[in-house]
Every structure is written in structure tokens, then in C-alpha cells.
Simulated scan of single mutants.
Amino acid sequence: MSVYISDPFRMAYLSDTPYDIEFATKHRYDAYRGGILNYLYGLDLSENELTGEIPSGLGDLLKLRALNLSHNYLSGVVPATFSGIKNLESLDLSFNRLRGMIPPQLTELSSLAVFNVSFNNLSGAIPQGKQFNTFETQSYLGNLFLCGQPTNTSCNGGTSQALDNGVKDDDGQIDMVIFYWSSAATYVTVLIGLFASLSFDSPWSRFWFSSKC
């Protein structure tokens, strides 16, 4: 667990209202209390076997620039209160058990450059707009029920890739039908021409023409 303070030399002079943040770690409930949480610059709690829901109070850490809760067993939803951390530049919630939708309020994080919620159980439409238009597919991998850009899954059901493949397959089938019909028509035309040429070159045809003359 790593906790970074933006100005460590001021720690002894801070007397803000204490906060309680509780996490369940290794089947044991612990709590952290302190009055310096508002001055946190970065918080890394990754790979700590944390369980339970993400405290919505983390959204009050207004000076936070980086938050990493990845590779734990966190459940519940992504707190919409994260939208209040206006200076947040990196948010990593990957490899947890989070469910529900990605809060559309997170599009208000204009400084967000890194966003990773891959390998959770999230669902619904991926928010669009502002910084969320810059995140690629890797940010959402492993969430089978997420839809919208930048994934290939349509929120109307199915996948856009499958739709494209279906259109291509239909076009291919139409092309093959046209090919078969044109081939058959060519074959019949050749046969008629062959029979006609043979009939005109036969002795009976010459006899028929000579008797008429």
C-alpha cells in the first residue's frame, strides 16, 4: 500500500476534520483515520486483497491526482462521487468485481488521461464525451456486457463486427448465385450453338437444302 502526500513538510501543521475509510483486508476489517486525507496526491491500494464496496467518501479527496485500486476483490458499483475529484489524472479499477454502469458523471473529469476498468462485471453503455472519447478498447476489456464505443458491441444488441460480417456474407452469397446463373446461361448458349453448327454441317442438312433448291 502506498500513500503519497503532495506536501510532506506540512503534515505536522494540519488539523482538518478526521475521515474514516474502512476496507476489508484478508478477512479482517481495518480502518484508517486521519486529518490529512484532503492533501493526498496519490493513493495506491492495488494488490491488497481488498473486499467490499469502494467508499464513496474517496470522492472527497479533492487534491487526488492518481487512484489505483486494481487487482483486488472490490464489489459494488463505481462511485459517481469520483466526478468531484476534478484534478484526477489516473483512475485504475481493473481486475475487481465491480458491477453496474460506468457513471456518466465521470465525463466531467477533464484532466483524466488514464482510465482502466478492464476485467470487472460492468454493463451498459460506455459514457461518451470529453476525455472518454480518447480511451481505447484496452480500458474496457473483460466486461462482456459493456457496449458502445470504442468496443465493437452495439447497445442495440449484437456486435457491429458481426453485422459487418453478416453483410459481407450476404453479398458473397448473392455474388455466388449470380455467378452460377451466368455460368448456366453461358453453358446453355454454347450447347445451342454447338447443336446448331452440327445440324447445319450434317449430310441430312445438306440433302434438305439441296432438295429445296
Rank of each mutant, 00 (worst) to 15 (best):
F132D: 04
L50V: 08
D170S: 15
S160P: 01
G124Q: 04
S183R: 02
L43Y: 06
K86V: 00
H71Q: 11
N120C: 06
F145Q: 14
P18S: 09
G193M: 08
G157D: 02
Y73T: 00
Y13I: 00
L141H: 12
N38G: 15
T151I: 05
L194Y: 08
W208K: 13
T151V: 02
T25S: 10
L93M: 12
A185K: 02
S15G: 05
E89V: 01
N152M: 05
G158R: 03
T25V: 14
F115Q: 05
V77A: 09
S111P: 00
S211P: 00
M1D: 04
A24R: 10
W181S: 01
S205G: 06
D201W: 13
S83V: 04
N72P: 00
D7V: 02
P104I: 08
K168N: 00
I192N: 05
W208M: 01
S123A: 13
D170M: 12
G157P: 03
L109D: 09
T137V: 09
Y41A: 08
I192H: 09
K212G: 08
R99N: 09
S211N: 04
L61S: 07
S111W: 08
L14I: 15
L58F: 10
H27K: 12
L191P: 04
I126F: 08
S75V: 01
V190A: 05
A31E: 02
T81S: 15
L109C: 08
